[in-house]
């Protein structure tokens, strides 16, 4: 079957649609002296602590539009970094958008002067998955977006000098924490920020996302509690001016490769190791985020983390794609030219045009051989099928092959994305060319 291209996965069509109830949360049993486990849930799923705070979840059109925004912001940042690497620290050029963050390197403040370069283009962290962490002493709980595509963790803070968006949890109040301290401007930690400022001797941070969402405030230290572990002196942003597409979350947990990320700050404790699992949409179970050397499941197949392409992002070497067990004919240079990022916050996998085209063609042929006809596409998704009246569908397998031979046989819950039962689409999209 492997060479004839007919490997099939039997898909429960209902498994592509959101579940409606959540099983009781499982007690964390994995935490130990050098490890900690947090629960991961879909922000709009039945197990989300934010679920009842929403009027209704975003539409598929909104989700996919936000996803495209995120992808474009990642592309901008990678391009800017690549330019810097090539030109040896050439300055980032300001983008055309206004800068609502308005932070001036070297001095204050929270004003609205447009100076922060938009083209710094961090990936927007609206993401889909959230975790609940503790902050301060005594610790209060905050549900935040978890994001491997950015570094600086932040929460909205009292007194919200300029603006806070609506969130479900109470705002973090530094005055109620006995261990809170602002980072001073002369502290070397202030230099770790990509965008920093100074007011009254206090270090200011700013993060502006690709779609204009932003957070600005004091860079601070306090005790971070993950599972039952306390990380003392954790550096984070205490946001005093925040707005954008952050849902009802209290902020964001940055898990990138940069100096300010939790990954790096807690490297002394967990060795820079972490792992997570996103549950399928239909299941009533939760996923997890583990820290520590024991985080790696025994059956993990590894591929090199490519660190020469700049900070923050986790680059890996995608080398090939198999559909129905058959390797597609795609030159490896198609993948290696731009590289591939593993991102927790992008919903739909993006491929170079040549690779996407080969995948789409092979999948379409496999579906046709199984009696399925294509229907109209939806947003960025072009290859869609009508599963009305079908409870189980046999669809071609899709596997991603990485440098070193690691292979990700995409789970049945991840091959297709259901807009509705009448429009179920291949969950891949093109980035438009092979050179981006």
């Amino acid at each position: 079957a492997g060479s004839s291209g007919d490997e099939t996965v039997l898909l429960n069509v209902q498994s592509l649609l959101p579940g409606r109830s959540c099983a009781a949360p499982q007690e964390n049993k994995r935490s130990g002296a050098t490890s900690a486990r947090m629960q991961v849930v879909h922000q709009h799923g039945p197990c989300s602590p934010l679920a009842d705070a929403h009027g209704k979840p975003p539409s598929h059109a909104e989700i996919l539009a936000a996803d495209q925004n995120r992808v474009e912001s990642i592309q901008r940042r990678v391009a800017a970094t690549a330019g810097k690497l090539k030109k040896r620290a050439a300055p980032v050029q300001p983008g055309p958008k206004k800068n609502p963050a308005g932070i001036h390197p070297g001095h204050s403040s929270f004003s609205s002067a447009p100076l922060l370069p938009v083209s710094s283009g961090r990936a927007l962290g609206t993401g889909n998955y959230v975790v609940t962490l503790g902050l301060g002493t005594p610790a209060s709980k905050y549900t935040v977006v978890f994001d491997t595509g950015s570094d600086t963790t932040w929460v909205q803070c009292r007194p919200c000098v300029v603006k806070c968006y609506k969130q479900k949890d109470p705002l973090f109040d530094p005055a109620r924490s006995s261990t809170y301290a602002n980072v001073s401007c002369s502290d070397s930690a202030c230099d770790d920020l990509d965008e920093s400022g100074c007011t009254g001797g206090h270090c200011l941070y700013a993060v502006q996302y690709g779609d204009g969402s932003y957070t600005v405030g004091f860079f601070a230290r306090d005790t971070l509690t993950i599972a039952h572990d306390a990380i003392k002196g954790f550096q984070f942003g205490c946001g005093e001016k925040n707005d954008g597409l952050f849902g009802m979350t209290a902020g964001l947990l940055g898990l990138g490769r940069g100096k300010t990320s939790l990954t790096v700050q807690a490297q002394y404790r967990y060795g820079g190791a972490f792992a997570y699992c996103f549950p399928a949409l239909s299941t009533d179970t939760t996923g997890y985020l583990d820290f520590g050397p024991g985080a790696s499941p025994a059956n993990a197949r590894v591929t090199p983390m490519l660190t020469d392409n700049g900070p923050t992002f986790y680059f890996v070497g995608l080398t090939g794609i198999r559909v129905g067990g058959k390797q597609l004919s795609i030159p490896e240079t198609v993948f290696s030219t731009g590289g591939t990022i593993v991102d927790s916050g992008t919903v739909i996998t993006r491929l170079p045009e040549t690779a996407y085209s080969a995948l789409s063609s092979a999948f379409t042929a496999g579906m046709a051989a199984r009696g399925f006809k294509k229907v109209a596409g939806y947003s960025i998704l072009e290859t869609c099928y009508d599963f009305t009246g079908i409870s189980e569908a046999a669809v071609p397998t899709v596997s991603l092959v990485f440098k070193g031979g690691a292979c990700l046989d995409v789970d049945e819950s991840g091959i297709l994305y259901a807009i509705s039962q009448a429009q179920v689409c291949l969950a891949f999209a093109s980035i438009g060319d092979d050179e981006s």
Binding site: Q75, Q267, A275
Partner: peptide
């Protein structure tokens, strides 16, 4: 730049190790 999105990561344990400079994928993790 290609991006491996979270839909394709579902049910896999995605493992990062800054010390060893590896990323890993473990099926059936949740």
């Amino acid at each position: 730049t290609g991006i491996l999105g979270n839909t394709q990561q579902k049910t896999y344990g995605v493992v990062y190790d800054l010390g060893k400079k590896t990323v890993g994928f473990a099926p059936g993790a949740c």
